[in-house]
């Protein structure tokens, strides 16, 4: 039972994933296929996001930098800090001032990756929908069976 509850997020994700994949395979309607693809991709986004969550941790946001005191300077200091990170990692870790020392926070990297993946997903969806529009103009239908039938008729007439 603990196994099921403890992996709750995975059960949800796998269900969504398989639903999406099934929709893509089973439906003959091109728009519904794209809906299935969308569902499938979104479930993968959730996989990434849920695996970066640390229980009881705060969001990966720099709230304040105690060393510099005031909150107004935060954005400026973050830029400075970012600029120096390549050098910082080369130094002895003990001598480096870590503003997140002792703070438990969720892993921000998967979020950033998924931001990119969302953009890719949107682009794919846009191209896919544009194609569906053109297919509808060319064939007068967006059902796969009807399209196949139209092509088959042409093939038979040609030969």
């Amino acid at each position: 039972m603990d196994f099921f509850v403890g992996h709750f997020n995975y059960w949800v994700i796998i269900t969504l994933m398989m639903t999406g994949l099934y929709v893509v395979i089973s439906t003959g309607n091109l728009v519904k296929k794209l809906v299935g693809i969308g569902l499938f991709q979104t479930s993968v986004f959730q996989l990434y996001i849920s695996l970066s969550k640390v229980r009881g941790a705060q969001p990966p946001i720099l709230e304040k930098l105690p060393k510099y005191g005031s909150a107004e300077k935060t954005s400026q200091t973050v830029t400075e800090l970012t600029a120096t990170i390549p050098q910082v990692t080369a130094l002895d870790p003990a001598s480096v001032y870590d503003p997140l020392m002792g703070v438990v926070y969720s892993n921000p990297l998967p979020h950033v990756l998924i931001l990119t993946a969302i953009v890719v997903g949107v682009a794919t969806l846009a191209v896919g929908l544009a194609l569906v529009v053109r297919i509808r103009e060319a064939y007068g239908t967006i059902e796969e069976d009807a399209i196949d039938e139209a092509e088959y008729k042409i093939e038979v007439n040609a030969s």
Partner: peptide
């Protein structure tokens, strides 16, 4: 016009492939 359906099929399968990879 079959280029459109060919491209659409490629899009569906290519996206499934890329998502599996991710």
């Amino acid at each position: 016009r079959q280029a459109l359906t060919a491209s659409f099929n490629y899009l569906i399968l290519g996206t499934i492939g890329a998502t599996f990879f991710v």
